[in-house]
Simulated scan of single mutants.
Amino acid sequence: MNKNLLVLGGIASVILTIILGLNLRKSKKTALTVGIVQTISHPALDAARNSAIARLKELLKNEVSVVVQNAEGSILTAQNIATSYHNNSRIDAIITIGTLATQAVANIEKEKPIIYCAVTDPKSLGLVHDKTNACGMTDAAETKSAISLIKSLMPSIKNVAILYNQSEPNSASAVQEIDQSISESSLNSIHISVNNEAEINAATNIAVQKADLVVVPTDNTVACVLQSVAKICLKNKKPLLVCYDTELYPGILAYVGGVNYSMSGSLAGEISVKLLKKLQKPSDILIIKPDTQKIVMNKKAVELLGINIPENLKIKVEIKD
């Protein structure tokens, strides 16, 4: 079994290298080439990728070629893409989107500049130091105020379930922060972890049985099926708090907003140009955090759950239909 996996991994690496080479040969020879590695297909990460490409093209015109690869949630694929980019001398810089992609690239690439976005905890990946070749944007959300607010609106809440993929490094750090926020609000934390998308519906059903509030951190696995999670919470009339900007699917009570993934991608493109032109070093930039964060509440969910928002608290939230 292990031998088969190694063979398949080797074949995948060769195929990625060939595809990358073909993509580069097809493109018109340019002064600079930027490789993009995306963790998985998801509207927020797609927005970051598209904005990064648009900004690169805007600033460098025809002087840049962009090669895009998507790991689709596979660690092995992300590692193979990272190896291909590292070994290709025509790749001048690498933009990584999401923690898995960033971790894979940072583990092997120590010279070319790495510009990351949608990474929850860059410090835990060892990217923040004075000799680093990586810098970028974090999408970490501040959850304390949101959990405190929901508790004040729903005093009967005692137990809070956190739904996440335990193998995602970004989720691990986010869960720690959420645990602290829950504890500071004198609530009980329940961890409901999954290994893949197929387990999420069953895990959500467990969460709504055990808890009074369900919280989803910045987790790529859960994000891909968030609408299904919201449906289960809606059916069981349990509030759902999402710790990143998202569409307000029926069943989501609120999300912690402030991270604009399109802007993060655009900024990644802009930073790439500065690094490629030697105007700055990664250690000059390190981590860029969201300027402001807000709590956005779903009007329909508020009404369904019978929540009354006092006038003095309305200034702390944005209510959307």
Rank of each mutant, 00 (worst) to 15 (best):
Y249Q: 05
N87T: 12
G126L: 07
N107V: 00
A106T: 01
S272G: 06
I162C: 05
I319M: 09
T143K: 06
K29S: 14
K231I: 04
A118Y: 01
N260T: 02
A161D: 10
A203H: 04
L226H: 04
S89Q: 12
Q280R: 11
K29H: 13
A54C: 03
L153D: 08
T83D: 06
V66L: 03
I108N: 13
L253I: 07
T17I: 03
N195M: 09
M263S: 11
L253N: 05
D245V: 10
D139R: 02
P310C: 11
S41K: 11
N80C: 09
N62H: 14
M154H: 11
T77G: 01
S262L: 01
N80W: 06
I182E: 11
G306E: 09
K235F: 08
A52E: 01
L276C: 06
S152E: 15
A140K: 09
I75M: 12
D130P: 09
L6I: 12
T120A: 14
C117T: 12
T218E: 03
K277S: 15
I232W: 03
D130R: 11
P122I: 00
E199V: 08
I182R: 11
K274W: 08
R55P: 01
S13Y: 01
E72R: 10
H86C: 07
L305G: 06
T143M: 13
N165L: 03
D321A: 04
A101T: 10
N165A: 14
K3F: 14
K61C: 11
A268M: 00
A82G: 10
M154Q: 13
V128Y: 00
I295D: 10
T17V: 07
E177N: 06
K57G: 04
S228V: 09
A172T: 14
N236H: 15
G265I: 00
M154I: 15
K28E: 14
A47E: 11
K238L: 10
S185D: 07
S27M: 15
V222G: 08
C135N: 00
G265Y: 00
V67A: 01
M154D: 02
N205G: 13
Q166H: 11
V222A: 11
G98F: 05
M297S: 04
S193H: 13
I192Y: 08
G9F: 07
K29W: 03
N88P: 03
K29C: 07
L100M: 14
I91Q: 01
V222I: 15
A268N: 03
K289M: 05
N205L: 12
A203Q: 04
E109K: 00
A140E: 10
I200K: 08
K316Q: 13
V242W: 03
L267F: 05
L100A: 09
A254N: 05
N196G: 08
A104R: 03
H191R: 15
G10N: 13
H129R: 02
I190N: 02
A12P: 03
V222T: 15
A52K: 02
A93H: 06
A104W: 12
V105W: 04
I285H: 06
V215H: 05
E177D: 10
I309P: 04
L8G: 02
I200Q: 06
N308Y: 11
L267R: 13
V215F: 07
E199K: 10
K144A: 13
A268K: 01
Q103F: 06
N50W: 03
L32F: 14
S148Q: 14
L127F: 12
K300L: 11
L313M: 12
N2G: 15
Q69T: 05
S89H: 08
